[in-house]
Amino acid sequence: MRPDIDRTERRRAHRTDWMALLSGVVFIAAGIVFMSDPSVPPLVMLTILLSGLGFAGLVAILAKAVRR
């Protein structure tokens, strides 16, 4: 424990990385859909994946704007 860091700075929690969290959820969901129904066309999966990543990026940008 360093004496130059005051008590409030030590207790501050990390901020949520919304881009990483939502991107992980999108990839897990895409993997579950692909494993449960492999007959889904790749173009549909790619469209859903890119839409989900775009939404995650939008949420991350909005969250960063709200923090400031």
Rank of each mutant, 00 (worst) to 15 (best):
residue 53 L to A: 03
residue 60 A to C: 02
residue 47 T to P: 00
residue 3 P to E: 10
residue 25 V to P: 01
residue 58 L to R: 11
residue 45 M to G: 04
residue 12 R to Q: 10
residue 40 V to M: 04
residue 8 T to Y: 14
residue 65 A to Q: 15
residue 4 D to W: 12
residue 1 M to G: 12
residue 26 V to G: 00
residue 8 T to V: 14
residue 57 G to H: 06
residue 65 A to F: 15
residue 40 V to R: 08
residue 7 R to T: 15
residue 42 P to T: 12
residue 22 L to M: 04
residue 49 L to F: 03
residue 47 T to C: 09
residue 60 A to K: 06
residue 12 R to M: 12
residue 27 F to W: 07
residue 23 S to E: 00
residue 14 H to E: 12
residue 23 S to L: 07
residue 3 P to N: 05
residue 7 R to I: 15
residue 45 M to I: 14
residue 32 I to H: 07
residue 2 R to I: 13
residue 16 T to V: 08
residue 37 D to W: 07
residue 47 T to K: 06
residue 29 A to N: 08
residue 37 D to L: 09
residue 11 R to L: 15
residue 55 F to T: 12
residue 63 A to W: 02
residue 64 K to Y: 13
residue 44 V to A: 07
residue 42 P to W: 10
residue 32 I to V: 15
residue 3 P to F: 09
residue 12 R to D: 10
residue 48 I to H: 02
residue 15 R to V: 07
residue 23 S to C: 08
residue 46 L to Q: 08
residue 19 M to Q: 05
residue 11 R to I: 15
residue 52 G to Q: 00
residue 40 V to L: 05
residue 7 R to E: 13
residue 17 D to R: 02
residue 52 G to V: 05
residue 22 L to C: 02
residue 44 V to C: 06
residue 26 V to L: 06
residue 64 K to E: 13
residue 52 G to P: 00
residue 66 V to P: 00
residue 21 L to F: 06
residue 55 F to I: 12
residue 48 I to D: 01
residue 2 R to M: 13
residue 22 L to E: 00
residue 52 G to W: 00
residue 3 P to I: 14
residue 50 L to Y: 02
residue 60 A to Y: 01
residue 21 L to M: 08
residue 48 I to R: 05
residue 38 P to L: 10
residue 38 P to Q: 07
residue 60 A to T: 04
residue 63 A to Y: 03
residue 42 P to R: 13
residue 48 I to M: 09
residue 58 L to P: 07
residue 7 R to G: 01
residue 9 E to R: 13
residue 20 A to M: 08
residue 29 A to Q: 03
residue 44 V to M: 04
residue 2 R to F: 13
residue 16 T to C: 04
residue 4 D to K: 10
residue 66 V to M: 11
residue 14 H to L: 12
residue 1 M to V: 11
residue 41 P to S: 12
residue 44 V to G: 02
residue 16 T to F: 11
residue 9 E to P: 00
residue 67 R to S: 13
residue 68 R to S: 14
residue 15 R to A: 12
residue 2 R to V: 12
residue 61 I to P: 01
residue 62 L to Y: 03
residue 38 P to R: 09
residue 11 R to S: 15
residue 44 V to L: 09
residue 8 T to C: 07
residue 13 A to K: 09
residue 54 G to N: 06
residue 66 V to D: 11
residue 24 G to L: 04
residue 14 H to S: 10
residue 18 W to V: 01
residue 61 I to Q: 11
residue 27 F to N: 05
residue 66 V to T: 13
residue 17 D to N: 04
residue 10 R to G: 11
residue 23 S to W: 01
residue 56 A to W: 00
residue 9 E to L: 12
residue 5 I to L: 14
residue 21 L to N: 02
residue 29 A to K: 04
residue 61 I to C: 09
residue 45 M to R: 09
residue 21 L to I: 05
residue 16 T to Y: 06
residue 52 G to H: 02
residue 6 D to F: 10
residue 57 G to R: 08
residue 42 P to I: 10
residue 66 V to N: 08
residue 44 V to T: 11
residue 66 V to I: 15
residue 15 R to Y: 04
residue 11 R to P: 04
residue 56 A to V: 00
residue 43 L to S: 10
residue 40 V to G: 06
residue 1 M to H: 12
residue 46 L to I: 12
residue 65 A to Y: 13
residue 32 I to N: 10
residue 61 I to M: 15
residue 16 T to P: 03
residue 34 F to K: 13
residue 1 M to L: 13
